[in-house]
Amino acid sequence: MNGLGIRIEGLHKRYGSGDTAVDALKEVEMTVAPGEVVGLIGPSGSGKSTLLKCLGAVIDPSGGRMSIGDEVIYDDGWKTPDLRSLRRDRIGFVFQAPYLIPFLDVTDNVALLPMLAGRPNPEARQRARELLDALDVGHRAGARPSQLSGGEQQRVAIARALANQPPVILADEPTAPLDSERALGVVRLLNRMARQFRTAIIVVTHDEKIIPTFERIYHIRDGRTYEEAGQGKAPD
């Protein structure tokens, strides 16, 4: 992928119509380069989740433009009708809780995405094992999610998000349930994975522990984003 990881220009989202209309997002501007991890911070009701849902192609923005790499995916309308494939192949998700599929073992939780993309099972599992090794949970490959610690589960969730090598990962408060040490561990991993796989990662967070680790931060307030240079104290 050349140029930008993800670029958002003039994105807005309106709920309802007429007198009851609410503008959740107004003129959101945002760019994240490949290999970069940026923070998205804002108080409750500021539009973080709406923005994440728009970026994740699970709700329709009301207007604006979004590009992943050189490809415009939204320009006052989705460029592809197949949003499911867009989510599967171009966007990775990491949630507040890992939300692993409890009836699949760790390997298959990660391999599921390549399988859904049509890759043969052995190839998908090989890819999963490589990612699990990269995230230091390869030794738990055969375990069930319920047998993992919270930190291990979040690592598996990150591996799942990377499984189809998406150019963009959206992380929704990925460190919320973790203690400081584990939270910083997750951020360390996200930074390493971003660099290693040239992935643009947007981390939505309230977590004071990890905010200083971002080199760039987007504040979102009243539906508008404001860019700020972060301290960039990425953990070792």
Partner: peptide
């Protein structure tokens, strides 16, 4: 419900 929502989010087809 949550697992199905995640499955749908990560691109699982409705028919699957």
């Amino acid at each position: 419900l949550r697992e199905i929502a995640v499955l749908k989010l990560i691109g699982t087809r409705n028919r699957t």
